[in-house]
Design a protein around this nucleic acid. Structure first.
Lengths: 151, 151
DNA sequence: GACATATTGGCAGGTTCTGCCAATTTTTCG
DNA sequence: CGAAAAATTGGCAGAACCTGCCAATATGTC
């Protein structure tokens, strides 16, 4: 991955639907080698895909919760049961395995506090081996970037 | 925003570069009304943009840190100085204003622990009025979804 | 039930995509 | 240094796609 590939990546992180023609101009290439590089980045898994960025509130999910979770034990069975369940829960946007106090950090999107209560009661507490759940809500966002730091 | 709009959003969250033709097929519309709906969603700000999803590790940023930050005081000056600085720091991908112990939660991307140390020492500790910094690292990810919960 | 409004589908000219090949640039190695 | 090999680039052209316009259909209202 050279400087040109990084330029392509930044451009597509900023504007994921850039036409190949515009992209090629922006990175000072002609369309064909530009397209070839994009395909290579896609096929090699550097670019994993593309997505629309949607306003949570406008869509109807105004509440973002960050949930720290600790498991009682860390047996293979316990861990994989938890992770399996996480993958099936649509409200959970992200789940990271963490260092420190908590084992997991979730980012959860819900439409109301009532919904969040239901989610914790019916879904999270339902999972075997969850020892502790600690929620913080996001009042708002200062920054959400889709572009990686440049060099 | 009706059911069709939501279908369009889900499809574009899953596959942000879907051609209008394919998209229209997927949501059972002909291309023109489909495009019109997409443009409306874009112009009204529901769809805020599009982005390429890039593999952090393949790009060369294998370390994700979540940083909880507390300010000493919450005066307008103090808060806006902090938030201003956050916006200029490229390593900070996201910054949320939080309820609970911490005032802010950052998601930070760096290429090494050494880099992270530099980042904290030179950038974060440099900001006036930061009372406490508490970092947790992500070992890995269980799930990262780009699609909002359906219904 | 009739009118008004909103939404849809088809069409067509213009644009963009994308695979192929020759030309150019970069790298390798004697 | 210089020649051969490898990688990368640009141009081309047929195919696919975009997108604004208009008539037709569907939806909602009184």
């Amino acid at each position: 991955m050279d400087a040109k590939d990084r330029q392509i990546i930044w451009a597509l992180q900023e504007e994921g639907r850039l036409s190949n023609q515009d992209l090629s101009e922006r990175v000072s290439l002609s369309p064909s080698p530009c397209l070839r590089r994009v395909r290579l980045l896609e096929d090699s898994g550097v670019i994993r895909g593309y997505t629309a960025i949607v306003d949570e509130e406008a869509y109807g999910l105004p509440i973002t919760a960050f949930v720290r979770i600790r498991l009682e034990r860390h047996s293979k069975a316990s861990v994989s049961a938890f992770e399996q369940k996480v993958r099936t829960l649509d409200a959970i946007q992200d789940c990271y395995v963490m260092t420190g106090e908590a084992d997991y950090l979730l980012r959860v999107l819900v439409k109301s506090l009532k919904d969040y209560e239901q989610f914790v009661r019916n879904q999270l507490h339902n999972i075997e081996g969850v020892a502790a759940i600690d929620t913080s809500f996001a009042y708002g966002t200062v920054k959400r970037s889709t572009v990686f730091p440049k060099v």
